[in-house]
Design a protein around this nucleic acid. Structure first.
Length: 306
DNA sequence: CGAATTTGACCGGCGC
DNA sequence: GCGCCGGTCAAATTCG
């Protein structure tokens, strides 16, 4: 669908394109931090979360190189740290046909059969029948699909992920899109469950996970996976809420979430939660694990404290 | 009554 | 090989 892009949008997508970086107070023009992923050196990505380099908060505040992969690594989204496919990897596609990277989206290999191979690595949004529609395939998978096994051996690719922390009492933060909850799981080491949502748009397989920090229950971590291939539904509040905190990267986020085409609705989202303050810079990243998250959360909530 | 959510079961990956 | 865990499914239930 939107893969009309000359290249994989995921690679070239610059969330800041068209925006002055100064549009977002939490990013600093003097510290260009978002780069086109096609140009993103892996090293830079690595550096982005080098403990000695900066914090996550810094990251959001503008000190960082932000790419899906580094986020993904930083948060160590359980399923993937080992084989997170960096955008670069995608670009290189060593050995693995970019097209049809089967089973990439959900790491459920059984989805293979329903995977839509027609959308070359153009992210989840393009696989019209994945997830939502095709989900049934899972349980009715062909018993012996060696193929899928083989494929399984190949690197399963993850959709680009973008995670962020917000201080909110609402779990499911409003981001302008419509989500349907399809699961909830207890999180290890946390009393708070993790909720799984899927974009309700029929052609969109974007998912998001929401979980609350047990260290600071006021902090919610939201992880988006994939990019929307549609615009933000206009049925949702069309105007920014008065309570929307200026400077929250919702526009920025909306640039990640929608397909490669610019999302004109970026300013129509309504968010009712506090956001990162652009003033905190001192948290050091430790290790990309849950503990790290907790550290971040601690720091975040500390800094957010009135 | 249709849509959305809840929730237990199921499945695959991974570490031991 | 086994058990744990994360992620998903889908029937049941709740909601609007």
């Amino acid at each position: 669908m939107s893969s009309s892009e000359n290249n994989n949008p995921r690679h070239n997508y610059d969330p800041f394109q068209g925006f002055s970086r100064s549009t977002f107070p939490f990013f600093d023009d003097t510290n260009p931090c978002i780069y086109s992923q096609s140009a993103a050196p892996t090293a830079a990505a690595t550096q982005a979360f080098d403990p000695s380099y900066m914090s996550f908060i810094d990251c959001l505040n503008g000190g960082s190189v932000v790419d899906y992969n580094s986020f993904s690594r930083a948060f160590d989204m359980s399923c993937s740290s080992s084989d997170v496919v960096s955008p670069m990897d995608d670009a290189k596609k060593i050995g693995v046909p970019a097209e049809n990277s089967v089973g990439d989206n959900n790491h459920n290999p059984n989805h293979n059969i329903s995977e839509n191979p027609s959308t070359p690595n153009s992210s989840v949004s393009c696989s019209s029948n994945e997830d939502g529609d095709s989900s049934k395939a899972k349980k009715e998978k062909q018993p012996e699909d060696d193929k899928s096994k083989k494929v399984k051996k190949e690197k399963r690719q993850k959709e680009p992920r973008f995670a962020f922390l917000t201080k909110s009492e609402i779990d499911n933060l409003e981001d302008g899109y419509r989500w349907r909850k399809y699961g909830q799981k207890a999180v290890k080491n946390s009393p708070y469950p993790r909720s799984y949502y899927r974009c309700t748009s029929p052609k969109c397989g974007v998912k998001k996970r929401v979980e609350r920090s047990f260290q600071d229950p006021s902090v919610v971590m939201t992880t988006y996976e994939g990019k929307h291939n549609h615009h933000i539904p206009t049925t949702l509040r069309g105007h920014a809420s008065p309570s929307m905190v200026p400077g929250f990267p919702h526009e920025f986020l909306s640039r990640f979430l929608p397909p490669s085409t610019n999302n004109p609705a970026g300013n129509t989202t309504s968010m009712h939660y506090q956001t990162f303050s652009p003033h905190h810079h001192h948290q050091q990243l430790q290790v990309p694990d849950y503990g790290l998250l907790q550290d971040l959360v601690s720091s975040f909530s500390r800094n957010q404290a009135p």
